[in-house]
């Protein structure tokens, strides 16, 4: 089985008000050492193990760009590992 961990975040330059709010709250709590913070969405996806790595990777890229992220404002990164258990 393939296991993909996909993270979707706003692109550079797009306002992330949630991150701004959390960062501000951390400052209020005294954590001034936290100099920046961004947020994102995390997905764990299991994919049929009979697929080759290239095929599994294609699936991950397709679902990430078509559904899990909106390419107008977001970008995605992923890690794909083979789970032999």
């Amino acid at each position: 089985m393939w296991r993909a961990i996909i993270i979707v975040k706003y692109k550079e330059g797009i306002l992330d008000p949630e991150a701004k709010t959390i960062h501000h709250a951390l400052g209020t709590l005294g954590y001034h050492v936290v100099t920046d913070l961004t947020t994102g969405k995390y997905f764990e996806v299991e994919i049929d193990g009979s697929l080759s790595r290239a095929e599994a990777e294609k699936v991950v890229q397709e679902i990430s760009s078509k559904i899990l992220s909106n390419p107008v404002v977001q970008r995605f990164t992923y890690e794909l590992t083979e789970d032999k258990a």
Binding site: P17, E18, V72
Partner: peptide, 17 residues
Amino acid sequence: LLEAGLLPGALIPNNHM
């Protein structure tokens, strides 16, 4: 309509959350 690509751009959360 934006998600479907029938109109350009995107709507993101309000700037004041």
